[in-house]
Write a protein that binds this DNA or RNA. Structure first.
Lengths: 111, 111
DNA sequence: AATATTCATCGTATTTGTACGATGAGTCAA
DNA sequence: TTGACTCATCGTACAAATACGATGAATATT
């Protein structure tokens, strides 16, 4: 991505973009669905469901965790992942807030 | 990105991911803001505001247009871009719908 | 203790994304 | 027509993302 100009933008723009980026891959959306639907959010269970190798799923889980969308706890030799609802709700709130702010200017457009 | 396994997921998952991907860069979020706030949505105006070269802005505009988030019309030697509100509203509706679907399972989690 | 399991991480190959200079097509003014 | 202007596209360089096999750490089972 060449010299990342990413830092030249607003903190809000960077945060929203980061949130969108985490959900910009179908595998990660699918993982969120699995985490919501399964009682035991074990990594191995996700690997069973998704058409991806264990290493790849683990990598996606790491990104979701780094972004704060999910929480992970060790459960013996297994790892249990769950949706971080407070974070998700805040992210969605901010995302919707940006859209609402855009909409306030709706009549302004020239075309 | 290795052999894209992207096609192995649900159409809905792919659509949501594609929408998120378009907004996964701060420049494109900033562009949406400019388009909402400026009466004349001229490419040159965006180049003035953003810390990016004209070619780069044009490329981002192309992606936003391909995804359907904005519309572009030629106005003499200039190009006028506007937000596609119907599309944006549908995308946001679907995005929120996914989140609501996740939330329905909220109590299910193990941790 | 020895073995099997679950999973995170490393290393690596490949694809995609980001950025910009240069070029050219199209339009307007003189 | 000439010249100035706007912008899309091409080509290119580099950074980041995606995917997986292999490895090893940690735990559980025998």
């Amino acid at each position: 991505m060449a010299i990342a100009k990413t830092t030249e933008f607003t903190q809000q723009e960077q945060d929203l973009a980061a949130f969108a980026k985490v959900l910009s891959h179908p595998a990660r959306i699918a993982i969120m669905k699995v985490l919501a639907n399964e009682h035991a959010c074990i990594c191995g269970r996700i690997v069973e469901i998704l058409p991806l190798a264990q290493a790849t799923v683990s990598q996606h889980l790491k990104e979701l965790k780094n972004a704060g969308l999910i929480k992970g706890t060790v459960d013996g030799p297994k790892s249990c992942y769950c949706i971080n609802w407070e974070a998700m709700e805040k992210f969605m709130h901010d995302f919707n807030g940006m859209f609402s702010a855009l909409q306030l200017q709706k009549g302004k457009s020239c075309c």
